[in-house]
Computed example of a mutant assay.
Amino acid sequence: MDVSEIIIPGDTPGTEWRLPVLRFKGSDPKAPKVYIQAALHAGELPGTVLLHFLCERLRQEGQGGIAGDITIVPQANPIGAAQSHFGELQGRFDLGSRTNFNRDFPLIPLVDRATLTEDLDDYPATDRLKRQLLHMALGADLVLDLHCDDESLQYAYIDETFWPEAADLAAALEMEAVLLSDGESSAFEEAVGFAWKYEVPGERQSRLPGKLSVTVELRGKRDVDPILAKRDADGLWRFLAARGIVNSEKATAAVFSGPAVPLDNVEIIRAPEGGAVLFHRNIGERMAEGDLLATIVTRPGQPGGSIELYAPQDGLILTRTSDRLVRRRGDLMKIACGSPSKASRRAGALEN
């Protein structure tokens, strides 16, 4: 294993950020190359601990057990990890630009990859970080961006371009659902997909055999657990083995049996008013149209002081907020459904 650091100068005198990069050299130049990063939203740590155990196994295997080059960035956002406001980590948005750390990645054709690291001094630290992460990823064939949700099942966002070929990853990581995205945002995994789809500028490819760029949601923020992390690392190992990147005698792909639905089929339940939320259903439950999901106590003790929210259609509860004091229009749940939501949705990511 080769360990290096990318040093990102800060935007004020006397500051800099260090980005560790772990590389495992493969023995077969024809094998797929892999790039995996975690904690782009700095406080989302299930992926970081998964990679800790995966690297341990890769070191044990040695070069003879690794066919394809593997690049791992276990803590992809040192800038966000240092942001704290009154003792609360603020790792999702850059406090300087107010931009989500997983948005505004450059959308370029693959032929322009080298330009990402040219004239880096012209960019603020956050953009330097994004450009260097994207540059590393575009040197690979398979790209995994490990995130987590709030309270959540295991699921993934996968561009329709890579489906159903990516079902082997969903099965290996025992995902309970897949959300098929339209590739229309500037999130990291979609910026990777954009570069591949427009490898020839102006010519869009609809299928990319042998390629994969995916956002994996490893359950919830509090699911930082040694048993889960080792299980997920084993699952990721099975995926790498089945794709011929690591050597294994049991390199057979599992079968994904969960729902795979377009983003248009995701119902996002939002609070019509602020108040204390009482959930009647938990993540992982399947509910029918009209089932009671939550009660919001808006005016405690007063007549008519609560609002009840019901399921708009049948579906599987994927996520739930951990907050119990919610704001008006705050997100409460995501539900994967068999039919499109009646709520309008802009192309791109579900949330900011």
Rank of each mutant, 00 (worst) to 15 (best):
Q205T: 06
S97I: 00
I307R: 14
K211V: 05
L278K: 10
N282A: 13
E189C: 08
E5H: 14
R281W: 03
A349T: 13
P32R: 11
P124V: 09
V214D: 10
H41Q: 10
P46N: 04
G47Y: 11
E217I: 03
M136G: 08
I70T: 04
E184I: 01
D119A: 13
F239H: 15
R207V: 11
A170W: 02
A242W: 04
E160M: 06
W196H: 14
G43C: 06
G244W: 12
A171I: 04
L179W: 05
A38L: 05
V178I: 13
E189H: 13
R128L: 09
T252M: 09
E176D: 14
G96Q: 12
S186W: 03
T215D: 07
L50F: 08
G244L: 11
T115S: 15
E217Q: 12
A260K: 08
Y310F: 15
F279P: 07
Q313W: 00
H280V: 00
P209E: 06
E118K: 11
S186T: 15
M287P: 00
G96A: 12
Y155F: 15
F279W: 09
E44C: 02
F256W: 12
G330H: 13
L138E: 07
W163C: 06
K221Q: 12
L180C: 05
A311P: 05
Y310Q: 09
M287N: 06
L278R: 14
D69Y: 08
P262C: 08
N102C: 00
A349V: 05
R346G: 12
L142I: 15
L212C: 09
P226D: 13
I335K: 02
T12M: 07
Y35T: 01
I70W: 06
